[in-house]
Simulated assay, not measured.
Amino acid sequence: MSADEQTALLPALDSHYEITKAQVEDYQEKGHVLLRGIAAPNEVAAYEPVISDCVKRLNNHNKPLEERDTYGKAFIQIGNLWKHSEAVAKFSLARRFARIAADLMGVDGVRMYHDQALYKEPHGGHTPWHQDQIYWPLDTDKTITLWMPLVPISEEIGSMTFASGSHKKGFINRMVISDESHKTLAQYIDGKGFEQWTYGAMAAGDATFHSGWTVHSAPGNPTDHMRKVMTIIYIADGLRIAEPQSNSHRSDLASWFPGLGPGDLAASPLNPLLYSRSQNG
């Protein structure tokens, strides 16, 4: 069977997943929300091997865990998988997920920023406190990340921990994921009195969504099993690229908005429109 034939057999992810007004309000107030079963067990079972094979093929980690820095111990991180595999693209560009993102943010439509596999290895380290959006050359609060386990996550491994309401502060500092960001943002969270919220165990196909400005972290993986997570980052359609303020901004501008610059619409060929209410209903 050819790769195209195999891709055609993967389940379509275009059906509508209904979210409630309360869930939208919860997301907008806290900066995060958990939605159960946005992908059915048979759907996750079909896509997990495809995504995992792509991660294995593209992974360039060649050092043992104990020889890596904190960031390197946190996870195997592979971005833009959808450009490397038509099968993965069928997952990452899914209309169902994109519509949820648009509904939670209250926008007409969303574009892909990029997807990322985040596979935390057995006995891998924690992910320090950070804000995703310090990397992104966008001046907006209309960004959101889907975080979906492709395998069951036990209470022992746990899902991410969020500082509820921290997204309302917007930009806090420019610290990239590091021991320093973990220490400094932990002090900030305590000082501001933000509630630390975790959803604990999650089934494959459950997903959290969090704002680009929501401060969050993740525990290490104390088990002998890989924590397999797929993420998709969405941006509201119609956003424009901001003037880069850091090396992280400049790096992301080159990587995810090739050929574009400050003031341009954030709509390169790497940022396809995935859902539009005015176009799709």
Rank of each mutant, 00 (worst) to 15 (best):
G205R: 03
I177E: 14
I134W: 04
T143I: 09
D190S: 11
P128M: 11
G205Q: 09
P219I: 01
K192V: 10
R95L: 07
G220R: 01
A204W: 07
G200K: 08
P137I: 02
D115M: 01
A186P: 10
I153E: 14
D141V: 00
I177W: 06
I189Y: 14
V176Q: 10
T208A: 09
Q131G: 05
H167M: 08
V176F: 12
Q133C: 00
A218W: 06
K168S: 11
L185R: 12
Y199W: 12
L185D: 09
D206Q: 06
T223A: 09
R174F: 03
K192A: 11
M175H: 12
V107Q: 13
F194N: 02
R95I: 09
T127D: 11
T214L: 11
E121P: 14
L104I: 03
T214K: 01
S211W: 01
A203I: 00
E156Y: 04
Q131W: 06
E121A: 14
E195I: 01
G220C: 01
A117N: 03
F97R: 09
K192P: 06
G158Q: 07
G125P: 15
I157P: 07
D132R: 03
H216C: 12
G193A: 03
H182N: 14
Y113M: 01
T223G: 13
G158T: 03
K120E: 12
L118C: 04
S217G: 08
T184E: 15
S181E: 09
G212K: 03
P222N: 12
I177F: 06
A186I: 02
K120I: 10
G165D: 10
W129C: 05
L138E: 13
